[in-house]
Amino acid sequence: MLRVQDRAVRFVRHLPLRGLAEHRAFLLGEASAPYVLFLDDDVWLEPNAVGRLREAIGELEHGFVGAAVPRLVLRR
């Protein structure tokens, strides 16, 4: 999808596997953008979530922000 939108995509391999936190630290070290979003493949964001995260970084003047995963509640 990103390539279809003419966005740069770069794949990197990082071995050996040492856990999620270490892998994310490696990816953060590889990043050249001013902001990085780590999003698990089983998480769907609300349409305005990225904008709210960016706004929070600016308002809080902090280098890391996160958001809880919304939960779908089905009522019968």
Rank of each mutant, 00 (worst) to 15 (best):
M1H: 09
M1Y: 13
M1N: 08
M1S: 14
L2F: 13
V4E: 15
V4A: 14
Q5A: 14
D6I: 03
R7W: 05
R7K: 13
A8H: 09
A8L: 08
F11Y: 15
V12F: 09
R13P: 01
R13E: 10
R13W: 11
L15A: 15
L15S: 10
P16R: 03
P16V: 01
L17R: 15
L17T: 10
R18E: 14
G19E: 06
L20C: 07
A21D: 15
E22N: 08
E22Q: 12
E22M: 15
H23F: 13
H23G: 12
H23S: 15
R24N: 09
A25V: 05
F26Q: 03
L27N: 04
G29L: 01
E30T: 00
A31E: 01
S32E: 07
A33W: 00
P34D: 05
V36I: 02
V36H: 00
V36D: 00
L37G: 02
F38G: 02
F38I: 02
D40V: 05
D40R: 14
D41R: 07
D41N: 12
V43W: 03
W44M: 08
W44R: 15
E46F: 06
E46H: 12
P47T: 07
P47F: 07
N48F: 14
A49M: 09
V50C: 01
G51C: 03
R52E: 15
R52V: 11
L53R: 00
R54E: 06
R54C: 11
R54A: 12
E55P: 01
E55G: 05
G58Q: 12
E59G: 04
E61T: 06
H62T: 10
H62S: 13
G63S: 10
F64P: 01
V65A: 02
G66D: 12
A67M: 10
A67R: 13
A68D: 15
A68V: 07
A68W: 06
V69M: 06
P70K: 06
P70H: 02
R71M: 11
L72P: 03
L72K: 10
V73I: 15
L74K: 08
R75K: 12
R75Q: 14
R75G: 11
R76M: 08
